[in-house]
Design a protein around this nucleic acid. Structure first.
Lengths: 225, 225
DNA sequence: AAAGTTAATTATGAATTCATTATTCAGTCA
DNA sequence: TGACTGAATAATGAATTCATAATTAACTTT
């Protein structure tokens, strides 16, 4: 019996960082929107002190922008930011792929195998929600498999910031099919424990995601002009 | 005339983040050491509120560790952390090298050339201090040259965290000579704007730094046993 | 009515206060 | 003497208060 668990209540500000980050990532708080402290305090039932501490952390993570004496705004995901973030994410995933091939045991690989099957099923039944979940789980498992906390934390942060992009543009059928193909390749390379190959294909996968995203955003701009 | 400059006084907590981070990176606050809030408040002349906000940020950056109701400790640089951080730094530098070749203009390259010359001079006169400064400037300029803010911020954070390592083990003459050679190669590749080559050599340079560091630390352990 | 000016209101940055949890230390008992 | 108990002290987490900057609203003035 673990007694520390019941005692290990996280501090208020830690919980708030989690909750607020989720509100931003899940697009409940919209980019550019002001974040009025008092209002949030009331709705969350906390005082300003821990909330402000949380906002400082969120700001250092890049989810909000602070202006002295003018409060916090939700950081907007500009195209420029996407185009800067994806290459960094891509190299991190490349490294993760290489390390994962070296460090994952077969039980872990089998687990990914199962999640991969889930993903295919979701694709066939056109269930975007389930697809996103399975896809995210697979990437996260590969990162975990790299056995590198530093890599994991930085990847997590960048992935969260970019995750909002899925609210900006919808996944096209064409890109969806391509992504599935890429995942098939990745699975094969993982099975073969081809470190270099998996790294490269994960990097490519990420950069293709960016291309598709940029294309989709441009298409949306066309509609508006 | 820029009027915003005089007005743009950073908030207290931002200054504190900077100052405290420097105290950690410059090894004034030693790893494992407790960080008593009151004492720091007195010596810095601020109240606890902004100081605590700063500590939260430092914690999210990994420079201190917070324990609920037990305050903050300076994070210790374990060998494990070094071995995790350097590969990540190395891939980031690889990416930076590739992008720098594409984006830097010749004036910027010439500036690096000059700093490179400074570095060689410092090497010849065995001035470690000057060498570290020039070396750091060169790496930073290459990162800047990549024209990618996300890359830059993450690199900056990781670089600061391992910078403390130089207080842990001294640079051996052998490694110093090798590092100089590697820098020569890097300069040549930059002049030739060989993106792939520069990326790879920067990555290798970083990993060699890690090897040397680990070796030096093991040698120190020998002495203690 | 529109632009500009000043006063009132609101929101934020920072200090202080309060409540709770750790830590220290004196005293007890084996 | 040495381990345990519990009170006293100190440190931390969070709420509140205070001072100041920003925003809004009211009021001129043209």
């Amino acid at each position: 019996m673990n007694l520390t668990d019941s005692i290990n209540r996280p501090t208020l500000h830690e919980e708030l960082v989690e909750r607020l980050r989720n509100l931003v990532v899940e697009d409940v708080l919209k980019p550019g929107e002001k974040v009025p402290e008092k209002q949030l305090c009331d709705s969350l039932g906390v005082s300003r002190t821990p909330l402000r501490e949380a906002l400082k952390v969120l700001a250092s993570e890049g989810f909000v922008v602070l202006q002295a004496n003018r409060g916090a705004r939700v950081a907007s995901v500009t195209r420029d930011e996407l185009e800067n973030t994806f290459p960094v994410l891509a190299t991190l995933e490349q490294l993760a792929g290489e390390l994962a091939c070296q460090h994952m045991d077969s039980a872990e690989i089998e687990q990914i195998e199962r999640r991969h099957a889930d993903m295919l099923k979701a694709y066939e039944s056109h269930d975007r929600q389930a697809y996103f979940r399975a896809n995210q789980d697979i990437h996260q498992a590969l990162i975990r498999g790299a056995r590198n906390d530093i890599l994991e934390s930085h990847h997590k942060l960048l992935a969260a910031r970019v995750r909002r992009a899925r609210f900006m543009a919808n996944l096209s059928d064409e890109r969806w099919a391509q992504a599935i193909d890429e995942h098939e390749v990745m699975m094969e390379l993982l099975r073969a424990r081809d470190a270099d190959g998996l790294g490269k294909s994960m990097k490519l996968h990420m950069m293709n995601k960016l291309s598709a995203l940029v294309k989709a955003l441009e298409a949306e701009d066309e509609l508006l002009s």
